[in-house]
């Protein structure tokens, strides 16, 4: 599976919007959700390839959402983000088999590399790779 669609979940709308815009430039089809409950709903309805989600959000936490998503879609790739250097919830997220727990501010290179790695480890399909590369602007100074 190659990652093509990403769901970005953060109660901070600035965070969700900037991440969505960046990932879109790289050719990912991005949707956003501003709460864990909304995120679980999106996963139920549309099954994105990957979820990028904040650990701590008001109401249902990201970790709780991660567990519910696992129940719904056991193979779903989930990357968590946290602004807390030492976070019990982040630990819990690791135990709940989050692909990675990234500290905020995000290291964008690392995130993008992770997204590509998910694709490789799951076995990339030529079409998807091609489509993503085609949509990637030439001016991007990466890879």
């Amino acid at each position: 599976m190659t990652v093509r669609s990403v769901l970005v979940v953060d109660d901070d709308s600035g965070m969700a919007e900037t991440l969505a815009d960046i990932l879109s430039v790289f050719g990912y089809a991005v949707t956003t959700a501003s709460s864990a409950v909304a995120a679980v709903r999106v996963v139920t309805q549309t099954r994105p390839d990957l979820v990028l989600m904040d650990v701590r959000m008001p109401g249902l936490s990201g970790v709780e959402a991660l567990k519910r998503m696992r129940a719904l879609a056991p193979q779903l790739a989930v990357i968590m983000m946290t602004a807390f250097a030492r976070d019990d919830l982040a630990e819990e997220a690791r135990r709940a088999a989050a692909l990675a727990v990234l500290p905020k501010p995000l290291d964008m290179e690392r995130l993008l590399a992770l997204l590509t790695q998910v694709a490789r480890s799951e076995g990339p399909t030529g079409d998807a790779r091609h489509e993503r590369d085609r949509r990637r602007p030439d001016a991007v100074p990466f890879e």
Binding site: G14, M15, I22, A83, L106, M108
Partner: peptide, 13 residues
């Protein structure tokens, strides 16, 4: 950390 992260993302974009 959150607002700084958002600014950093914006600059990146």
């Amino acid at each position: 950390r959150n607002p700084l992260g958002v600014i950093k993302n914006s600059v990146y974009y």
